[in-house]
Design a protein around this nucleic acid. Structure first.
Lengths: 217, 217
DNA sequence: ATTAAATTGTTATTTTTTTAACAACTTAAT
DNA sequence: ATTAAGTTGTTAAAAAAATAACAATTTAAT
């Protein structure tokens, strides 16, 4: 329909279905592993079998990225990877501040994968004096007051909340005051922010709920 | 329609929409914070405003749990909490084995929240001799060989994969051989398992994709 | 060269999920 | 007591997403 068929170009105004958006990174990971195994082409039916889904849905998802397959051959793994990476903006590095350097926070900083997927945590923040001044991998941990200087050197549009639950709202408020545009909230707490601020909640409890439900059905 | 109106009883055969299932833990967290603030009643419109969603959808979601609201008063916070907890099986403790005691694995073990939501990690596993024998919080870390004994003492139906990506499949295979019924996969790798095994993938990359998309639109 | 099989990509249909509409009810104010 | 406002809960409609159907194409085999 209104899909852009100018190859390798992003559908900027076009809203991509969120389910599609959520599936694409999974495909990407799969394609990367195919590449490691020197597999050059893959068909939608193979992909569908791997993810236990309908092949049509796969082609639809992939078509959003502008990639073109070849009849009887399938899709080029290289092109798939390239198109998805570009489409999801995983190629342009986005800086992020992380607030709350506890277990989860440290795990995220140590998580190499994120960098590969377009996100670079450039600084950690905490209110615990015992943590401030430390360094986790290449990421230094700062106190709240150090923000001004830091933000001038390495500005960030994304703020990650990995604080204890009850500190989520105040942290969000702080981030908004700092000019953060998108908040990635890893606490189960729902946070209140101005209309124009993007919030994405990552709740492992939702996944847990799904597992328990399937298990006990 | 075919909703069970026998109060406080779970709709066992009835399939609950997964979106509903995913939203319930968020509500629950919110209700718990209301309770801490000594708020006894809450209306669907208040809940809807908090989560920026339609009030009708809230009532629908809540109705699945069998909770009943009072006109002009709203829902009892206590009853909401109780019904959601029961409905999601967060009250009956489910044991889990965790494989891959790296940063993320440790973070999950240290995460107190999980226990409160029905999941208890009873043992960690790793192939790194430097890690085997250690103890993270109350959770001991074992080698693969220790499984038999352990599984007799504290059986578990859920297996958590927090290994490096390229070890996901072999870990899954092992878990299936162990008799694990549901696998919670924290790697982006898609894993192949027998038909009857439940798999839930937690991919923070999906959330990241959504954030970047909104940010760059 | 011809044909058969496999595969993409599009359009149509069905299913699922969300939103809207509205009736019934209950509390609090007059 | 009466009324008005706010709220639940259900039914209907709309929107979104997934699946099915199928045409077009292209490769590989005969």
């Amino acid at each position: 329909m209104k899909l852009p068929n100018n190859n390798m170009q992003k559908a900027d105004g076009q809203a991509v279905p969120e389910p599609t958006l959520r599936r694409l990174p999974g495909y990407l990971s799969y394609f990367k592993s195919l590449k490691i195994n020197n597999i050059e082409f893959v068909s939608s039916s193979q992909i569908a079998a791997t993810f236990k889904m309908d092949a049509t849905l796969v082609t639809k998802d992939l078509s959003y990225t502008g990639v073109k397959g070849r009849t009887k051959i399938g899709y080029s793994v290289d092109k798939l990877i390239e198109n998805i990476v570009v489409f999801l903006d995983f190629n342009t590095q986005e800086n992020a501040f992380l607030f709350g350097v506890g277990n989860l926070g440290k795990a995220l900083i140590n998580y190499d994968g994120l960098k590969q997927y377009g996100l670079k945590i450039v600084a950690g923040f905490d209110i615990d004096p015992a943590v401030i001044g430390l360094q986790v991998k290449e990421v230094k941990i700062f106190g709240v007051d150090d923000f001004r200087d830091l933000s001038r050197k390495t500005p960030a549009r994304i703020g990650i909340i990995t604080t204890p639950d009850h500190r989520a709202q105040e942290t969000a408020d702080l981030m908004v005051a700092w000019g953060i545009k998108a908040i990635w909230n890893f606490t189960p707490q729902s946070i209140k922010v101005p209309e124009n601020i993007i919030v994405e909640n990552t709740s492992i409890y939702s996944d847990l709920a799904v597992i328990l439900n399937k298990l006990n059905r």
